[in-house]
Design a protein around this nucleic acid. Structure first.
Lengths: 335, 335
DNA sequence: CTGAAAGCGCTTACAG
DNA sequence: CTGAAAGCGCTTACAG
């Protein structure tokens, strides 16, 4: 019969009245501050008991307003659909949780608009810090954080305006490429580089590493084919159709810049096994558990998400970080 | 020389002073309420301009406290490492965003402790509603929400204490199994069901569908082998080693209950192609873009994450939902 | 050892 | 058309 739908949740005032003490004391007790030369153990116990009985839960908005501290930690990623970003998200959540913070991960689907809207929203929520993973041009976001006096770190793609944590793209790409060359019979000047975006940090670094390896094997090599055909399977498929029109143009090995590009490559290979036989070795700068079971010869480079997140949290604790500090984390070769 | 590190962010009081109006008017203007028979357009413009100039950003904690409305929408999922949960997370974010809410997705790694801690934290943040996706026993979480008068919906696994959205597991499993049987030469009584957990909703439903199909094909079939060996590749590997010791025990087809179990199956197949040849057809109740490119004969059942999320948001808008209302969304067969 | 009071930044019913 | 005031729920320096 208590038709009152609006039964307010209990506050410290309710506890105070019920336990016969002041709201201030309730606050102290509930925050475990009572031992600090205040409040008798009996009263503390009474307050605790009353809080339990009433089912009290702190209002974090009120606490956050008072302390100007939200207990929220944010990270932006492009999406969750590959193991790299999924791994970053999960490690981030674990670390944030271990610091007593509530993690907020949001995917932006690479939309600039969504990116800046979320950054503003999260800053308005007074998040304690923000990580930007895989954001193509993080400078604007970094500056928004500086305005709000909120620390931020870039992951995977560095920015001038905040410290960054990246993978050793160039070295790892060279290693992956060398392995492609080493696989008997591969001619370094007939290798193909596939995927990524012109001017994008990781793509360009990896192309440097790719060329390090090819020009080491074939000093006067100028015949390498670089296809920055983006990240979607479809565009990869299209690019391959254009660049491998006949068996004479079949590459001796393919460096694939992302797992999505690998998807496109596989589609092409299924459709045209005559142009891209199973024997052609593939080196993928990304990792996926299924790729290991694919037919043919696939090796992978796996980025170390744990170390990257750890390094980012580490950076956060340092008192004065130079804005353009960059930490490089090595990736692992997966045969 | 403005060494003052503590340069407070501007508030509506700063704007009020600067624009020569009252804080109340500033609030009205900034919330677009001014047209509502109040405040002159000139003043509104002046306030807007001042806010821009000062770089004003609302403090959402204060607003949330005042309105007891956080603008936050939460979802719990076990992890991000497969396309199903990744897809749910992304659809959820998109829908929440389109409603002007800030999505908070957290992964719990199937830890009960993490689950309840997060639910409490999010309720303490006064999230507007909560989705529980893939939580094995959501009843406790649902009750916590009811206590806090916060709406919630279960996804993928239903619960008695809140409305739910699930896949047509039984029908879809029957369809997937029938297809396995149809693939020339498969004997229904030598099929194997692999993965999942005893007593878990989706697993048991799918087993029912699996048996629907096998007993239809072989009416007096009692020889089916059901292996609820969990979700990890390792445990799947172990189970297979035990149940397929010799070529005579090779199944005529395998129903795989999750993408992680498929991973384990592939490991086994790589290690022992004599016991599990490529020819044995596989039906996987989960979807992954790479699985389509695996060698052998793999079909998949893809859950419709968009429809599931849409249905869940739809449920939220209904005034009086019965607690145990369940919406069933069909999955799509991927040949 | 404990309480009264101020204040975090916002919104809205109310009075003018 | 506009402002003064109360209040959301909490914390903490201060006075006793």
């Amino acid at each position: 019969m208590h038709a009152k739908a609006e039964k307010r949740r209990p506050t410290i005032y309710d506890i105070a009245r019920d336990a016969g003490v002041s709201p201030a004391s309730v606050s102290l007790v509930l925050n475990g501050q009572w031992a600090r030369q205040r409040i008798s153990p009996e009263m503390a116990e009474r307050v605790e008991e009353t809080a339990r009985r009433l089912g009290y839960r702190v209002n974090r908005q009120a606490r956050g307003l008072r302390l100007s501290r939200s207990g929220l930690a944010g990270m932006l990623i492009p999406h969750y659909r590959n193991r790299f970003f999924a791994g970053l998200a999960e490690c981030f959540e674990e670390q944030a949780r271990s610091l007593g913070l509530c993690p907020i991960v949001v995917s932006t689907q690479r939309s600039e608009d969504t990116q800046s809207r979320f950054v503003r929203t999260l800053l308005d929520q007074r998040v304690e810090f923000l990580f930007f993973a895989g954001m193509n041009d993080p400078a604007r976001l970094n500056l928004a954080c500086r305005d709000a006096e909120t620390p931020c770190i870039n992951l995977d793609i560095p920015g001038r305006e905040a410290p960054s944590v990246v993978t050793n793209n160039r070295d790892a790409a060279r290693q992956l490429t060398s392995n492609l060359i080493r696989q008997g019979g591969v001619q370094a000047d007939r290798l193909l580089f596939l995927g990524g975006i012109e001017g994008e940090f990781a793509t360009e670094e990896r192309i440097l590493g790719f060329r390090d390896a090819t020009s080491e094997a074939v000093p006067d090599n100028h015949a390498d084919r670089i296809l920055r055909c983006g990240y979607s399977p479809e565009s990869t498929m299209t690019a391959l159709t254009r660049v491998i029109p006949s068996p004479e143009t079949t590459p001796s090995g393919v460096f694939v810049n992302s797992i999505t590009a690998l998807e496109g490559l596989l589609q092409f290979r299924s459709a045209r096994p005559d142009l891209l036989p199973l024997a052609v070795p593939i080196g993928c700068f990304d990792w996926d558990p299924f790729a290991a079971h694919l037919p043919g010869n696939v090796t992978m480079m796996r980025q170390d998400v744990d170390q990257m997140i750890l390094a980012a949290f580490q950076l956060l604790t340092e008192a004065h970080i130079e804005r353009n500090r960059v930490i490089v984390v090595p990736a692992a070769f997966v045969p």
